[in-house]
Design a protein around this nucleic acid. Structure first.
Lengths: 135, 135
DNA sequence: CGCAGTTGTGTTATTCTATTACGTATGCCA
DNA sequence: TGGCATACGTAATAGAATAACACAACTGCG
C-alpha cells in the first residue's frame, strides 16, 4: 500500500531522530540534534519534514508546532482522519484513526454545506500513565 | 451564563476589529489595524487576545495562527467542544458545536485511557458559497 | 552525446509569530 | 497605609517558517 519511497540522507536522519523519541520534536530541536550530522540551517530540516509528511511518515501537530513519526501500525486508509491525543504532562502522543468516526465527523461538517478536504484533530489532556501517577 | 466581563480599552479595540471582519486575523494584522489607535507592540495585542480568549469571546485557530471573534449565537455549553470549518478559498470560518458529537468524541478518545481536557478541531476545505462559485 | 526537467542540497537573509523582562499605573480591600 | 491583582507601555529576544540564489545529481529523450 504505502510504497516506502527512497529516502535521502537528510530525510533519513530527520526521520530517525523522530523515531528515537517518545514525544514530538520541533523543527529547531531537530536542527540542534542534527548539528553533529552536518545540519546548519532550518531549511534542511523543513525540507526533509516536508517530504516525510507527504510520504505519510511524519505528522505535524498544529497545536504544538512540532512533529512526530507516524506510529507504524495505525496507517490510516486514504481519506481517514487521524487524530492525536497529546499528554500535557509527559508529552507522549497517541495516534487515533477510525473509519466510523471519520465518516461521522464528515457528515456532521458536511451538513453545513462545507466540503472538508482535511482536518486537524488534536486532543490535549492526560494519558493513562500520567493519571495513574497523579492518583 | 456568560457574564460579560468588563473589557478594557485595548481589549475592546481588538475585539471590535475581529468582529468587523469576515475571516480570521493574525496578531500582527491586528497590530497593523490598531496602529492608529495607539498600538505599538505585539504584546498589546497578545495580552488583549489572551483575556478575550479566556472570556470565551475569541477563538484561536491553530492551523492558521490566527484569531476569530466567537460567532455569537453558537455559545457552547461548558465542556462542549467547538469545531471550526475553515474555507481555504474565501477564508470564512464556520463555528460548529454539538453536544452529541462532543460526547462521542470524548468516548472515542477516552477508550485509550486518555483523559482529554481540551481539543483542537479544525476542518479545512471549501464552504458552500465557494463550491457554488467553482461549479 | 547534449540538453531540459526534476529533485535534493547548502547558505544567507528575511519574515512572521510569540514571549521575557522591566518599569509603571490603577483599583481593591483588609 | 500596605499588599495584591490587573492592566499598560516599551524594548529586546526567542521561536517558527519561508524566500532567494546557486549548485550537484539523476532521469528521460531527441
Amino acid at each position: 500500500m504505502n510504497e516506502r519511497p527512497e529516502l535521502t540522507r537528510n530525510q533519513t536522519l530527520v526521520l530517525s531522530k523522530l523515531e528515537g523519541q517518545e514525544g514530538p520534536l520541533s523543527a529547531y530541536q531537530l536542527l540542534d540534534l542534527l548539528r553533529d550530522d552536518g545540519f546548519r540551517a532550518p531549511l534542511q530540516v523543513y525540507r526533509a519534514l516536508d517530504k516525510l509528511m507527504r510520504a505519510g511518515l511524519v505528522h505535524r501537530l498544529e497545536s504544538l508546532n512540532a512533529f512526530v513519526a507516524c506510529s507504524g501500525h495505525a496507517h490510516a486508509h486514504a481519506g481517514d482522519v487521524t487524530a492525536f491525543a497529546i499528554c500535557d504532562q509527559c508529552g507522549q502522543v497517541i495516534e487515533l484513526s477510525d473509519r466510523l468516526v471519520s465518516e461521522r465527523l464528515d457528515e456532521w461538517v458536511s451538513k453545513t454545506g462545507f466540503k472538508p478536504t482535511g482536518a486537524v484533530l488534536e486532543f490535549r489532556g492526560a494519558c493513562a500513565a500520567c493519571q495513574a501517577r497523579a492518583a
